[in-house]
Structures are given as C-alpha cells and as structure tokens.
C-alpha cells in the first residue's frame, strides 16, 4: 500500500467533511432573521384523513407570525395530527398549508410521549448540545462561544448546576427542562409542542410556560397542544379550539368560553356514536 497516497486521500476526505459541515452551518446562519416572515402558518381548507378515518375537516385559518397559540379540544379531535402536518410528517388529503417559506428542518417539534430512553448514558450537557447540531454540523468541534450558548440555555431552564449530571438521575420535570433547553438552542422560527406539560410538577410547568412567553417575545411562532385550561388562560394569548374542525380560533378571552367547550364536546360525542360521519353537515360552523 502506498502510504503517501493514503494520507493524501485521507486529508482530501477530511477537507470534504469540513466543507460539508461548513455549508450546513451557513444554512443555519441564514435563519436568524426570525421575525422577517409576516404571514405565519396558513391552513386553507385543510382535510386530513387516515384510511378513511377523518382527523381534520375543512380547517382554514392562520397562526400569525410571532404568536403563542394553545390548541385545545377533545381527544381524537386532531390536535396532534395538526402539529404533525405542520411539521410535514403527515400529508394533507386535500387543501394546503403554507409555512411562509420556512423549511421543515427549521421547525422544532416535540412529540407527546417522547420515546427517549432516559437511562441512556449521556450527561445533561450532551443532550442540550444536540440542539446546536444544525449549526455545528455532525463533524466539527463545539467552539467556546457555542459552549457558552449551551450553558446559557441550561441557565434559562434553571439547570445550570446539573450540567454534568447523568441523564437518568433527573426527575421527569427536570428532563422536560433539558428538552426545552435543547429546543432553545435550535433557535427555530416555528416551535410545535405536543402536550409538553403532561405529568410534570407545577413549578416546572410555570417556568417552562414563562420560557415560551420569552420565546414569543423573540418573535417565534409557537403552537402548543394542551389540556390544562388554567395554563392556557394564564399564559397563552391565542387559542384554537379544535374538534376535527375549528370550533373557535382567536384571542383566548373570546375563544375559551364554556359555550365553545360544550360545542366541542358535543361534536366529540357524535364521533363516538357515528364514527363514519364526522360532523353532521347540517350544522353550521361558527
């Protein structure tokens, strides 16, 4: 084997990888103008169905750019489906969804029951550092500013002292904080969260909700599926009540009414009785 040639090829490969990482970081740098998009996420006559089971019917409306919206509604009302469709995991059966030119990779999505193995032997810092992956790339070192960013993100969720702790020593609430710190670093213009506050303690819930408000002030568009109405009232300016179709969509004060909730529940009873026909067509929408 010609040794020199081997070294040459290896250094070429290294340069290629470096370049590859660099391009990725450029791509990431281009997205810091978070608030330049105005329209937000617009759904037009959106219909989504799995194997003839209707999940969302004729949804039209806009998540304005830079708003913090709670999505509430009965189980099976299509809340998670809506988030997955925005993230591009599910294709709509008909209708359209526009994200104002933001690529899917720049939408942060936190799934409902993350199937993460919490006994995985990583430290808290390691997990949070993953949030910088699209900036750093897969093949390069984290430099000092990036390490500082990681520490700032940990600080913002109140876990600075836990940076070097093993993941499996954390409580459920602390683990959720870690995931939020990771999302903070991703710095995405659109953030989608599916039941992020399920089964965590109330102080964590409050701290994380405040963090969401902070992100909104930075100009991000945030959509959160929730079922705790008190949290919605306290922290979320906008609400969408979803029961396969939009029952109400707008300012939380006007949409989160007993009347609308009753209506959503009434629709959901109707699915249980008659699964095939989702919503009686004679009822007019509000």
């Amino acid at each position: 084997m010609n040794f020199e040639r081997f070294i040459l090829t290896a250094s070429k490969a290294y340069r290629y990888l470096k370049k590859f990482g660099h391009e990725k970081s450029l791509e990431a740098a281009g997205r810091h103008n978070i608030s330049t998009h105005q329209e937000g996420i617009t759904c037009t006559n959106l219909n989504i169905a799995y194997n003839s089971h209707i999940a969302i019917q004729d949804l039209s409306g806009t998540f304005q750019s830079g708003t913090l919206t709670a999505v509430i509604g009965p189980n099976g009302g299509g809340k998670s489906t809506l988030l997955k469709t925005i993230k591009g995991f599910i294709r709509p059966s008909s209708g359209a969804i526009t994200r104002n030119g933001i690529p899917l990779s720049q939408i942060t999505y936190l799934s409902q029951n993350s199937e993460i193995d919490r006994s995985f032997p990583l430290s808290v810092k390691d997990v949070v550092a993953m949030g910088l992956c699209s900036e750093v790339g897969f093949f390069r070192h984290y430099n000092r500013t990036q390490c500082e960013k990681i520490m700032q993100a940990l600080d913002s969720v109140g876990l600075l002292e836990c940076a070097d702790r093993a993941l499996h020593t954390l409580s459920g609430g602390q683990f959720q904080r870690v995931l939020f710190a990771r999302m903070a670093l991703q710095n995405a213009p659109i953030v989608l969260l599916d039941e992020p506050f399920a089964a965590i303690d109330s102080s964590t819930m409050e701290a994380l909700a405040q963090l969401l408000c902070k992100w909104q002030q930075q100009g991000r568009t945030i959509i959160v599926v929730l079922h705790d109405l008190d949290i919605v009232r306290e922290f979320f300016p906008k609400t969408l009540v979803l029961a396969r179709q939009s029952i109400a969509w707008g300012d939380t004060k006007e949409t989160l009414t007993l009347d609308n909730l009753r209506k959503a529940k009434f629709y959901s009873h109707n699915w249980d009785n008659n699964e095939l026909e989702a919503v009686p067509s004679t009822w007019s929408r509000n």
């Binding site: 993230k87 990779s105 939408i107 942060t108 999505y109 799934s111 993350s114 199937e115 993460i116 193995d117 995985f120 990583l122 997990v127 993953m130 992956c133 699209s134 990771r182």
Partner: peptide
Amino acid sequence: FDPSFMYSL
C-alpha cells in the same frame, strides 16, 4: 438516543 429528533433535524 432520539431518532425522532434526528428526523426532525
């Protein structure tokens, strides 16, 4: 560790 995170990147 987290395939769905990888996918969402």
